[in-house]
Design a protein around this nucleic acid. Structure first.
Length: 279
DNA sequence: ACGAGAACCTGTTTGC
DNA sequence: TGCAAACAGGTTCTCG
């Protein structure tokens, strides 16, 4: 479900609702998700106060006081929503919940269980966490630009779509926004990474930032599973130019071509053969 | 070292 | 209508 814009939207919703609240109760309903829940998870949470909520790649970091960090990943189908102790009824695929002192229950729901929940005892050790220490650049940060992308793509023969989805290089860009960014940049998803010129890298980096920011402004994209923490839907799916539009006309004015769908690395890629010619 | 593909799991959609 | 196959927003592992 979630790429960077969706996770960012969830983080903001979490921050609004749970910052300053103290955890009074926590419970798991399953032995784990992609990995087993850590030992003593609930005991480590109870009594802590939520200090800040931060996003790193597609991971949500809930910083606790006096210490500790709750790490959450939504996988493909994860959702977080709020309820109240008087109204909450456990539903299928609710795997974890946390009750707080302002009459709030946070529920983690994930049918496919590709998500992750972990606890980091020492807040200073976040960067060394096994899931975080190998992550590449944040696309919206200044450390990511055309120059950096040009350097990373040297010596890489893999298609450029794979490279921008490679979290060791660049984080947060998933299957939807990879296709949308490449279309926006006018670059073929099949181009070998090392054939991109410096100016193409500059354009692509700009397109990635532009598309992600637009999607964040629209509250993310809702296809099937995704909703924000308040239950609202994202709106960016209405702004898709290529994703899920195979067979339809290319949206560029005057382009006679149709959007094509192909499989790359086992995932669907959407593109316009005319607007995204391979060098 | 790199890149392609499978695996993890459930629910929904598509095609015969 | 019914059933099986294909497919879905992510990440990690294995194999060539």
């Amino acid at each position: 479900m979630p790429e960077l814009p969706e996770v960012e939207t969830v983080c903001r919703g979490l921050a609004r609702t749970i910052c300053g609240q103290t955890i009074t109760h926590a419970k798991t309903y399953w032995e784990g998700l992609r990995f087993a829940f850590p030992r003593g998870l609930t005991e480590n949470l109870i009594g802590k106060t939520i200090h800040a909520v931060e996003r790193r790649a597609k991971y949500i970091l809930v910083h606790l006081k006096p210490k500790g960090v709750l790490l959450i990943h939504l996988g493909m189908s994860g959702r977080i929503f709020f309820s109240e102790p008087a109204h909450y009824k456990k539903a299928k695929h609710d795997h974890f919940l946390m009750e707080m002192d302002h009459n709030t229950i946070l529920v983690y729901h994930d049918p496919r269980r590709f998500g992750v929940i972990d606890y980091i005892p020492d807040s200073d050790q976040c960067d060394h966490h096994r899931l975080l220490h190998n992550l590449g650049a944040e696309p919206l940060s200044d450390s990511f630009d055309g120059e950096a992308l040009f350097q990373w793509t040297r010596g890489k023969k893999a298609p450029v779509k794979n490279t921008i989805m490679n979290a060791q290089i660049l984080v947060g860009v998933g299957n939807i926004y990879a296709s949308e960014s490449l279309y926006h940049a006018g670059i073929s998803p099949f181009s070998p990474s090392n054939t991109l010129t410096k100016s193409e890298c500059r354009k692509l980096a700009q397109s990635i930032k532009f598309i992600l920011q637009k999607a964040i402004d629209a509250g993310g994209s809702s296809l099937k599973d995704y909703v924000a923490t308040d239950g609202s839907l994202g709106r960016f799916q209405h702004g898709f130019k290529v994703y899920g539009r195979d067979g339809k006309n290319c949206p560029r004015q005057g382009c006679p071509d149709h959007i094509q769908k192909m499989t790359q690395q086992g995932r669907s890629t959407f593109y316009c053969p005319s607007c995204q010619k391979q060098a």
